[in-house]
């Protein structure tokens, strides 16, 4: 059964160490669309992705993936749901002791019984897509930060998931590989009908490929809607400050604290 809303989050509340991160947020992620989540650093974007992946328990609210609640399901159901999700970690999170090839092959070896030649073709295809087929025998320690993230992307799409969560895929990329990645994300989305959720700071790049956008600040969603309409909400001072990158304004640049003087 296919729901047109691939992932729905209702009335999500979450706090960490008694600091409220999300206050009653609702999201809807449509199947086959690219949804961007923007927001200042430390607002809890990574945390949101971890909640979606079921790695952290919600305080209250519902997370519904493909029509199944995943915030309070059994381990088995959660693992079945995760097989259909790919996640690109902010840090890459590659396995240090395995080569690039083995890293990408890992999810395939775990979940599919493929013979070695087929597996090798699949892995090399994924590596080719991120432009790193030549690096297949390197160890993660021998990669640059940007390369490591591209390998992590290849690993995240190895199982051909239905939905993929990108945590800041574009940081640390030069303009060329940034473009390649943008195209890749778009391509994956169009050819495979992948639902993509992108968390990022690179406002313009992300807005150029996203269908829908949510902007988070101060525990709330301050703006949502189709990408092209976001830039036109000039009456929203919080949003304008974030999009234009001004340091004075309603969004605090400093982590909450007492006054210095």
């Amino acid at each position: 059964m296919k729901h047109s809303k691939h992932l729905v989050i209702k009335n999500l509340c979450f706090s960490r160490n008694e600091r409220l991160l999300f206050d009653n947020l609702c999201f809807e992620f449509e199947r086959g669309k690219i949804t961007a989540i923007l927001g200042p650093s430390g607002i809890g974007k990574t945390t949101l992705l971890k909640l979606i992946g079921g790695q952290l328990p919600v305080d209250s609210g519902e997370i519904i993936f493909n029509g199944n609640a995943i915030h309070n399901c059994s381990d088995k159901e959660l693992y079945d749901a995760r097989k259909k999700m790919g996640m690109l970690f902010q840090s890459g999170a590659l396995f240090n002791e395995l080569s690039v090839f083995e890293n990408v092959a890992f999810p395939l070896r775990e979940h599919c019984k493929l013979d070695e030649s087929l597996l090798s073709i699949l892995v090399l295809m994924k590596l080719e897509a991120v432009g790193l087929r030549g690096a297949k025998d390197l160890k993660p320690i021998e990669l640059s930060g940007g390369m490591a993230r591209r390998v992590a992307l290849a690993r995240a799409i190895a199982l051909d998931p239905e939905m993929i969560l990108y945590d800041e895929p574009f940081t640390g990329q030069d303009p060329i590989s940034m473009n390649v990645l943008l195209n890749l994300v778009k391509q994956l989305n169009q050819t495979l009908g992948l639902t993509s959720i992108i968390v990022s700071h690179d406002v313009n790049e992300v807005l150029s490929i996203a269908d829908n956008v949510y902007v988070l600040a101060e525990q709330k969603i301050i703006a949502e809607g189709p990408a092209h309409s976001i830039l036109q909400q000039t009456d929203n001072s919080l949003l304008q400050q974030f999009l234009l990158g001004r340091n004075e304004g309603p969004v605090p640049f400093h982590f909450q604290c007492d006054d210095f003087f």
Binding site: S91, A93, L94, P107, H111, R155
Partner: peptide, 22 residues
């Protein structure tokens, strides 16, 4: 500890492989 702090175990979990079992 190193696998945990570099999120390797978390990423394994997201690939639907239980780090406790694996």
């Amino acid at each position: 500890g190193l696998m945990q702090s570099t999120e390797q175990l978390a990423s394994m979990e997201m690939m639907a492989v239980s780090p406790l079992k694996r």
